[in-house]
Amino acid sequence: MGSAARQRSRERLREQREKDRRKAARMRTLGVIGAALGVVILIVGIGYAVLNSDRSGSEFDGALAPQTVQEDGSVVMAQPGAEAPVVEVYADYQCPACRQFELLNGDVLKETAAAGEAIVHFRPVSIFAQQAVPISSNSLRGGAAARAAADHGVFVEYNDLLFENQPAEGQAGFTVDELKEWFRQTSASEEDAAAFDERIDAEAAVVTQFTEDYLPALTEDALDQLGQENLSTMVLTDLMAWGADNGHDPSFLDGTYTGEIIDATGNAYTRYSGDNAFRATPSVYINGELLDNSTTMTVRGLQGAIDEAGPGEVQTEPLTDGGGEE
């Protein structure tokens, strides 16, 4: 055998060995990637199952506890004479986190109230009233509509409908027609619907006047005379009080549900102090103590906090002029 032939066969052998080596390396890499993929699937899969188990609470479709409109326009849902913790829920109908709260824990509120284990105090607010249209106008129209629904004893149902149909932030929504249509999906009567429609038309006009005429003019003046720094520290109701003394008459809000929700928001800011201060929505308080995010925004957290708390007292008085409450 010539040396050239031997050279060739050695060459082939080396090529083959090299090929095998590459193949082995490739298999090793694929194996490791497979293992890593397995780890990812395991962590995401188990984690997802654990997180979802929090939501596995059955949907509540029993009878709601009676609802009572309060003097300030808030609504208490509780069994008569219930001795239970007071769960105050501050929410803005345009606030996405409030929608998440409602989707997640709405049933916990209904269930515990129906069982006499909680006194649920819905306190709608409008923290977005000073934002740009349509965020501000959606927020105010939603709040006023919920209050109007409360007149006919269907606040909780309507509250659900508003959150289910919440417009994306910055997009037009909660239109007058929609608000009227959703009312017809509640258990309220046709007569109620006529009264509701009338109220919505009136409130929508007030909201438009507020967001498009009154507030821009007031803000511009305040900016000129008080400066950006002062203005940014003022809550809306303080700004409006200043405006009342400076040629911006807020009396068109008197007696309207739009005005009522603006007042309710202002009062929320002064009602609590220190760690309990009202800063954002959704805020949930049990017997006056603010819950943290992971308690508020998990089923287990909220349910546990209600179970642990002692009985409390509702801090508002029921509306006495027979505002249609049933």
Partner: peptide, 20 residues
């Protein structure tokens, strides 16, 4: 919203142990 944080966690674990 549910799985992204878990995915981030899984990547962190893989980086820490140095797998793939």
């Amino acid at each position: 919203g549910y799985t992204l944080p878990l995915f981030e966690l899984a990547l962190a674990v893989l980086l820490l142990v140095g797998l793939a």
